[in-house]
Structure formats: structure tokens, C-alpha cells
């Protein structure tokens, strides 16, 4: 294995998923991985599953997948802001109601982690962090000392994660890499409508490339409206700015957004 495509946070956005899969094949990857959170936010949850199956995408279980798969009462979102809570509930109820029994069972069986070898690099794939599915690792609130601890305690040279919704990469000496691969489900709060995934490849050392994915976001917005999903979610798809679930953003990441 020399070149892999890795994405996370599909959030029901099957249109972005289709576009990303097409893009990854064009780049001649050896394998494709998904780091979890298939549901939430967007329309028609069941349209994601055949795409993942049809393209032999290997998946890690995200917190959303764990909730939907095990029929939990909510997404375990635990927001303290009442507005965030309100939207989190709507989003979860819709996704849960529209995910088939068979797909829920499939989500339930997903592994919390995957490991692959890229040349001499031990690559560990997880959802939030290697120690906890729902841990947020933001660029501005994760010290390098803590990353060193993760590399040491999990015997990995490269750690790939998602969950926060905003991509980042930090290289540590001598040759360790933490990569948040971003999400396909919604834009990353930068005023652009595209979403992101990552290509990790061997070329001498490890190279990390973030790939912007344009997709038919207007069609997604129209389908979200037709499904009566909140106007606030539609606005994010159309403008590229997050409108909900902002309380988890650290100040540095929050300042880059509009809301």
C-alpha cells in the first residue's frame, strides 16, 4: 500500500461522498477509508451505505454511528447551549428514523480503530482520538506533548482522525504525523461551499495532501428543504459558515467563522 484516501464525517451528504470517491479513484489510490460519523445533518441517510459498500470503503465507527447502531436515545451530544441541543436533537431524530434496520446493524459492527502499514509507517485510524471516540482534537487545543503521548502509547507513527469538522496536520520530529482529515458532510466554516478529504501517500517520506471537493451543494440544499431539515443547516451548506453546534469550537477556530 502506497497511497490511501481517507475521509470522515459524511453526515448523510451522499453527494459529496460520490464526488470524493470519484476524485480518489482518479488519483489512483490503493485503498479508501472512512473515519466515521456517517449520519447527522443532511438528507437521506440510507443513500450513503451502498456507496461505501460499492467502493470497498473500510470504515471506523464514529460516535454517531455508535448511537444510531445501538439505538441510543440521542446522539450523546451533551451540549450545554440550549440552541445547540435543539438542533442536535432534530438532526439525530431524523437520521435515526431514516436509517434502515440493516444499516443500523452494520453501523453497530464497525470497529473503533483500523491499522494499516504504509512502507515503514504504522498508521492508526480512529474517529476522535485513539483513546476516545468522542474526543475533540482541535489544532489550537492539542499540545504537541499530548500528541507525542498518543504516538507512544498507541505504537503509531501516523494517526488519522476526524470528528471536529476542521482539518489540520502537525508533523513532529523525527517523523510522526497527526492528521485530522476533515469532513465530507459540511464545509469547514470558512465561507466556502467545498468540503475536504485527505490523501496520505509514500513519496520518500509520508506526504499529506488535503483535497477540496466540490459537489452539487445546491441540490443537497434543495433535498434538505424537501425533507424539512432546519433552515440553519441549509444555510451552512449554501454559505460555508457554521450556524449551529458552535459551542465546542475553541476561540481560535471560532474567530475564523462568521457566527
Amino acid at each position: 500500500m502506497k497511497r490511501i484516501a481517507v475521509f470522515g464525517g459524511i453526515y448523510n451528504n451522499y453527494l459529496a461522498l460520490e464526488a470524493a470517491l470519484h476524485d480518489a479513484h482518479r488519483r489512483d489510490v490503493d485503498a479508501i477509508f472512512c473515519l466515521g460519523d456517517l449520519g447527522a445533518f443532511g438528507p437521506h441517510p440510507d443513500r450513503v451505505f451502498p456507496l461505501l459498500g460499492g467502493h470497498q470503503v473500510r470504515c471506523v465507527q464514529g460516535n454517531y454511528d455508535n448511537s444510531v447502531g445501538n439505538g441510543l436515545a440521542d446522539c450523546q451530544c451533551g451540549y450545554t447551549d440550549p440552541r445547540d441541543n435543539h438542533f442536535a436533537r432534530l438532526s439525530y431524530a431524523y437520521t435515526f428514523a431514516n436509517t434502515s434496520q440493516a444499516n443500523r446493524a452494520w453501523l453497530r459492527g464497525l470497529p473503533p480503530q483500523l491499522r494499516v502499514q504504509l512502507g515503514q509507517y504504522r498508521v492508526l485510524m480512529c474517529h476522535g482520538s485513539p483513546r476516545r471516540t468522542n474526543e475533540f482534537l482541535w489544532e489550537s487545543t492539542t499540545s504537541s506533548a499530548f500528541l507525542e503521548h498518543l504516538f507512544d502509547s498507541h505504537q503509531a507513527d501516523v494517526i488519522l482522525a476526524t470528528h471536529t469538522g476542521i482539518k489540520w496536520h502537525r508533523a513532529l520530529a523525527p517523523d510522526r504525523h497527526f492528521v485530522n482529515v476533515g469532513v465530507l458532510g459540511r464545509p469547514e466554516n470558512d465561507g466556502r461551499t467545498n468540503v475536504w478529504y485527505a490523501i496520505i501517500s509514500l513519496s520518500g517520506g509520508i506526504s499529506v495532501e488535503f483535497v477540496p471537493v466540490d459537489y452539487d451543494h445546491e441540490r443537497l440544499a434543495a433535498e434538505m428543504r424537501a425533507e424539512n431539515l432546519p433552515a440553519e443547516f441549509v444555510e451552512t451548506v449554501l454559505t460555508g459558515w457554521w450556524t449551529t453546534c458552535l459551542e465546542v469550537l475553541p476561540a481560535k477556530e471560532r474567530k475564523r467563522g462568521r457566527h
Partner: peptide, 9 residues
């Protein structure tokens, strides 16, 4: 904590 450790996105 700044954010509830149980909070998820």
C-alpha cells in the same frame, strides 16, 4: 473544563 468532555459533534 471549557467544554463538557461528553459533548460531541
Amino acid at each position: 473544563a471549557n467544554v463538557d468532555p461528553e459533548a460531541q459533534g
